[in-house]
Design a protein around this nucleic acid. Sequence first.
DNA 1: AATTAGCACTCGAAGAAGATGAGTGCTAAC
DNA 2: GTTAGCACTCATCTTCTTCGAGTGCTAATT
Lengths: 345, 345
Amino acid sequence: MELDERKVTILKAIIKNYMDTGEPVGSRTISKYVDNRWSSATIRNEMSDLEEMGYIIQPHTSAGRIPSDKGYRFYVDQIMQEKDSEAAEVQELMIQRIDRLESVLKRMAKLLANDTNYAALISGPRYRQNKLKFLQLSRVDQDKLLIVTVLEGNLIKNSIVHVKETPNDEELLNMNILLNSNLNGLTIEEINLDVISRMKQQAGSHADVVDLVLEQVAEVIRADSEDLQIYTSGATNIFKYPELSDNQKASELLQTLEHTELLKDLVDTNGGEEGGTGIQVYIGEESPVQAMRDCSVVTANYELGEGIRGTIGIIGPKRMDYEKVLKTLRTLMVQLEATFKKEER
Amino acid sequence: MELDERKVTILKAIIKNYMDTGEPVGSRTISKYVDNRWSSATIRNEMSDLEEMGYIIQPHTSAGRIPSDKGYRFYVDQIMQEKDSEAAEVQELMIQRIDRLESVLKRMAKLLANDTNYAALISGPRYRQNKLKFLQLSRVDQDKLLIVTVLEGNLIKNSIVHVKETPNDEELLNMNILLNSNLNGLTIEEINLDVISRMKQQAGSHADVVDLVLEQVAEVIRADSEDLQIYTSGATNIFKYPELSDNQKASELLQTLEHTELLKDLVDTNGGEEGGTGIQVYIGEESPVQAMRDCSVVTANYELGEGIRGTIGIIGPKRMDYEKVLKTLRTLMVQLEATFKKEER
DNA sequence: AATTAGCACTCGAAGAAGATGAGTGCTAAC
DNA sequence: GTTAGCACTCATCTTCTTCGAGTGCTAATT
């Protein structure tokens, strides 16, 4: 059997209606929806076909139909084809200042959740193969040294180490020159024994400090690439959708959103490979995350230059407003990247 | 009427039983619980008295009794009096290293939630009237300066500013000396026009950089004292308690936990004034947060020296295991402060 | 051949009626 | 002061009924 034009019209009508109400929709409703172009009986026949083809489902014998995963998939694929020109108006994307990327991302998640009424998720960027750009030692106390580590991409990390005795100002100055001239531009893998021993030699009486500093630098870089930061917002929005808010499901979903390690699968996938917008839609069973099998998940990858990339995601009911979500995400990505570029300028 | 010994025994028995089961407890249950020391009829009479006195409540005529807020209050007050000597064993409080206080606090909230099976909340420390300890300018790019600001209490903040042209190394060195000699030990209020104009004069050709730096410093300090960080963990634990997990209540409570601004009242209160352990117990209606009127909330204030203080909180059902929670909190506080001191050493 | 009106049928949801039993209050006896 | 005994209450569970939205099928119509 083929999906002729009338079937498509009816399928879309079913999906649209179900999106609004969340209730199974019957043949008479559709008949009215299409201005009685066809009678309810005709619609019934068509619906019967559509069900046989797997696009819609009857929850029980005497209920209307709801879209199946396949039905949503068809709908979404259609939307994705239509290039929407107009951008969604994202409320107040006045990111006044990137003080810390983290805070921008958090605010962005909040914005998204508020704007869409679904749950939003955003992963902090991963910095791969990052290079050292700049190191600075300073004395902050009698026995404490502050190490500021700047990585490629202007990622800044601080650490404080304790030493028996801090070098004096001149020695510090020399150490800073020593560290920077030896280490700048190296990735952590490139800092090998050879480099280290040469530095120690040059450091003379303060070789122990070199050790401490290197240890810290290694830890800073490792910590950053290891624990993936994921921020969520609007998780409780799911209570707005009856089909998700029964206790069992809501509990599972919220628990998943609370434990970021369970969200890795969502964020790890490199959706950008298709070269398109990098936006992916997972409907129901398609989701890589167990607890989201009753939801739809839309993810988008952002890239802030120099391989710094992360993921934004929206989690909502299967009947989410895909059109709006896709638009909003696209707009947001553009703005995020633009804001970042401007700041980097 | 007086609370004689038998009434107290029975009241405690009711509370203990209710804590375990979450179901109203009847006279026969209690009778068995006290090894038939008194018959169910006697218990009934006593229960009738206890109800009249407001310590227990009958949800409906033919149900057992449950403790009222007043009943819990009595019980908790008794526990608080008994000085428990033995410390609770808090799982694996091996905080290997304070890399960033933030991450320690997050982990601690997680720990607490796991350990108690209630929701945990922890507020980042507030730094009041903070003094500048150290400033450092470095060049990281052609047109970018890195400003590292260290405040009293070793709170470190970074910011990057754009300048038309960075000073050369020697000028930078001089500027650092200038900034530190003029600003160290001052609070933001103390940086007045007088100080600023004097510095600008001394800075000569790079007076504009001084402006930029001061602006950043002001912002860093302001941002930090303004937005109070609150981390929550184990929010979904509330689904473990039927009396809290009906959709209405759970939704409200979770929403409150998601919006940190609603938690301010819990964290702002300065419970330490009584001079004791600084632990406070809010039972039901006593809670300052609307959505927690059906819960109990236990908060404790920690202090990490130099006026850096914050709050830890546990949110659970009224029938929470107060004894355990109090013990755990006390232990945790001691350990947190000890860890911090050691690290500061 | 496609469409539609008509009708019997299905089945979940909501409500009513009754059965169950845990738990109480009260009284009278110990 | 304590306890046994008993009538009474009332939430909960089960069963039964009603109701109606929605279907599938058939026969008539275009």
